[in-house]
Simulated scan of single mutants.
Amino acid sequence: MPNYLDDAQRQDIARLRASFTGRTQWPTWLLLAGVYAAWPILLLLSPRLGLWPTTLLMVPLLVLWMSLQHELLHGHPTRWLWLNKLLGYAPFAVWYPYTLYRDTHMQHHRDEDLTVPGLDPESRYLSQLRWQHSGRLMRLLRWLDKTPPGRLLFGVPLALGSLIVAESRRLLRGDRQAWAMWFTHGVCLTLMFAFIERYSAMSGLHYLLLATVPALAISMVRSYYEHRPSEHPQQRTVINEASWPWRWLFLNLNLHLVHHDLPGLAWYHIPAVYHARREQWVARSGGFLVPGYAELFRRHSFAPVDSPQHPYV
């Protein structure tokens, strides 16, 4: 646990982990079972439900699945990394193999490197040198990405473009781990799309473009203003007091500073830990508090939240 926690806080967290819920992790198991049951059932029922009702139900299910994958790579619901990987490997959301997500996200959790381009793999900031070498179109897209509507529309193409460039370089270098990962992911995708084409009212292309892309875009609402540059690492991570639909879809990751300080804390314990010491968390964040995602849309739909250029790099 972080050394700044006092004895009472440590005892509170220890009690949560020692509780029946903490020991069994039944909420995560229940969600896993629910998603693994809901995904095929929804597709099998899609001829009766209709194409678009199925799509509207599939999108939030995929957002929830991505949040669950995040829990798995942080050691929930088991302590066995291989078992968590097996539980989370299903490529429902298509774009990011579980292994790639796990490895880059663990690197992202080096808080001293948060937001720094080239060190934080999830940074949306550019170094001043890269900014100077960007074309006008790329600069425009980066500015639009700093608004919530722009993140919804252009966040996915920008992220997938970076993914393609980075992974192509690994493959061209002959990186065996990358080849093995993408081959395995490709096999799983082939089987999944065969199921979709055979048993659902969706085509594979419809699922790809109109289910997984919107789901990834919604998940990027969470990361829109999740981090900011700051001289103090603990003040780079937001506390977003979002309303219940977002909290549910993102499994309380809106309280992101709590997660970064206590990455081993399960999603269902985060709100209790936060609300027990709310003023301390807000002070620790340097006042990096957002009252909800609706407020971000209200304030920044037409005004970028900050610059795409990192101020210190």
Rank of each mutant, 00 (worst) to 15 (best):
L49F: 06
L72Q: 05
L81V: 15
T28Q: 04
T54W: 12
S19C: 01
D6G: 12
R79A: 15
W39H: 10
I41E: 01
T55L: 15
H76Y: 03
D7S: 15
T28P: 03
L51Y: 08
L42S: 13
P27A: 07
S19M: 07
G34S: 14
L61G: 07
V59A: 01
L57C: 12
V63K: 01
W65L: 05
P77E: 00
M66W: 09
L64Y: 04
A8N: 12
L42E: 00
V63S: 03
L30I: 05
W65M: 10
L62M: 01
T21N: 07
W52S: 13
Q9E: 15
A37M: 00
R15W: 09
P53D: 08
I41A: 13
P27L: 08
P47Q: 04
S19Y: 11
R48S: 11
T54G: 11
L43Y: 03
T24I: 08
S67Y: 07
F20Y: 11
Q9G: 12
W39G: 06
D6N: 15
A37H: 02
D12S: 08
L72G: 02
I13W: 01
S67C: 14
Y36S: 08
P77K: 02
V59H: 03
R79M: 09
L56K: 06
R10V: 07
L62H: 09
E71Y: 06
L32D: 07
R10M: 11
Q9P: 02
P77D: 12
L16Y: 01
T78C: 13
P53H: 00
A37I: 01
L30W: 10
W39V: 10
R23A: 10
M66K: 04
R48H: 06
D7P: 10
L81A: 13
L30C: 14
M66I: 12
L45Y: 11
W29F: 10
S19F: 10
F20C: 09
D12F: 14
Q25P: 03
L72A: 04
V63Q: 07
T55N: 07
V59Y: 04
A37R: 00
A14M: 01
L81M: 05
L73W: 00
S46P: 09
T78R: 03
E71L: 02
V63I: 10
Y36V: 02
L72I: 07
L31K: 05
Y36C: 05
L68V: 11
A38I: 02
T55D: 10
A18S: 14
T28W: 02
H76R: 00
S19D: 06
L45H: 04
P47I: 03
T55C: 15
P27S: 10
P27R: 02
G22D: 04
L62I: 13
G50C: 06
L30K: 02
F20Q: 08
Q25W: 05
L31V: 13
H74D: 10
A38H: 07
I13R: 04
P53M: 01
L43W: 06
R17H: 05
R10S: 09
L57W: 03
L68E: 09
W26E: 01
